[in-house]
Amino acid sequence: MIDLINLTLFQLDALKEIGNIGASHADTALSELLRKKVWISVPEAKVVPLDEVPQEFGGAEKMVVGVYLQMQGQISGNILFFFSQETAMTLADILMKRPAGTTKVLNEMDQSAIKETGTILAGSCLTALSALTNKEIIPSIPYYAMDMLGALVDFIIINLSQNAEYAMIIQLEFSESEYKIDGSFLLLPDPQSLEVILTSLGVG
């Protein structure tokens, strides 16, 4: 099993490159979906101790809306897309074609639209990962929740803690200036899949 704490900068760069290509796909997909120019940050690839994952993304008690998907197939792991409640309301306004500021409560239709956005983002990133590694990856259906960030991520941490003390996280931050949308997209491969990814990128 690969030791996450000993990943080289070279390996982290290779993982960041997955983020880069994923980001350019996601950028296009999200901009088309929202009909707005969405800006995606330079991706980060980082290794974080499991118990520090919530702090890394703004604190355990931060209220967020999250869409979760599992990666299955030859590469497995977790995908979490999360943002503030305000961004969720704005996303719902845009996706449901309502005037800005209309959405006050996220109903089931809004939740479905937000889940769909998560699916599209995850799909574009996984397409990139799949093409780079030549491995088959299947995203699960999307799951939706609104709660404290720490509570939303703890089962991902639990899942990883069976085999590791650290999480390798590829992170994309996206934002749109007109509507002040921003959010985070995290890809957390399982430790055994990380080895598969690095080997197929030629940096194993």
């Binding site: 979760y68 599992q70 799951y143 929740a145 509570a151 939303l152 089962f155």
Partner: peptide
């Protein structure tokens, strides 16, 4: 709790 309805973590199932 089970934060995302019906998500199972193999081999743990409903981990909560």
């Amino acid at each position: 709790a089970q934060m995302f309805a019906n998500v199972l973590v193999e081999p743990l199932g409903n981990i909560g």
